[in-house]
């Protein structure tokens, strides 16, 4: 159940300049009835996608660029699964809700938090040319707008960075710690 390795991505992006996008919009509750993690991409943003103008219908790319406070609300990891299943590898926003950020990292989707200014520059670049590409470099922790050369550093927890670069997930690691966990339990 390893997660996909992530090192560096060059891709176009899909702009979604709405703030406070909650996980009920990313994947509505009525689609949470599966017992497997695949297949949620078909219903990603289902209730918004019926609008022909909705960005997913007009742009393509492996990077989603979204407004402030992305992924708020329900803890459903299905939201991150749906984004991955659709084909996104990176989500960029100026602010992420906590649980979503954790879920994304745990299923190999890289959340990149940038400044409001840089986010606006990304939207501008896509506005100017929908074919604009961006480079996300996890090792260097940088994101670059190719057409302008503008670049910004992003933060990521050292442990999760190691997991993404190596395609490692936490379950095997935690189970390897069982002797230490049992030691902790015996001291309670």
């Amino acid at each position: 159940m390893a997660i996909p390795k992530f090192e560096r991505l060059t891709s176009r992006a899909v702009p979604l300049p709405t703030q406070n996008i909650d996980t009920d919009q990313i994947i509505p509750a009525r689609f949470l009835k599966a017992t497997e993690r695949q297949g949620f991409g078909d219903n990603l943003f289902c209730d918004w996608r019926s609008e022909p103008d909705f960005p997913l219908n007009r742009f393509s790319g492996r990077i989603l660029v979204a407004g402030h406070n992305f992924g708020c609300g329900s803890s459903r990891e299905h939201a991150a699964w749906a984004l991955v299943d659709y084909g996104f590898q990176v989500v960029v926003s100026s602010f992420f809700a906590d649980i979503f950020r954790g879920n994304a990292l745990n299923c190999g989707l890289l959340p990149v938090q940038v400044s409001e200014r840089f986010l606006a520059e990304m939207f501008d670049a896509i506005d100017a040319d929908p074919a604009s590409e961006f480079i996300v470099d996890l090792e260097a922790q940088t994101i670059m707008i190719l057409p302008t050369g503008a670049s910004e550093r992003f933060e990521i927890d050292a442990y999760k960075k190691k997991c993404l670069l190596g395609g490692l997930d936490d379950v095997d690691y935690l189970v390897s710690l069982m002797p230490e966990i049992e030691q902790y339990e015996s001291n309670i």
Binding site: S75, E77, G102, N106, V171, L174, L177
Partner: peptide, 21 residues
Amino acid sequence: GVGTSEVEMALASQCIIQSKP
């Protein structure tokens, strides 16, 4: 609240890995 990956972690080891808030 946690995501399903963390549900699995806790089922497997009774622990999760989180930043202190």
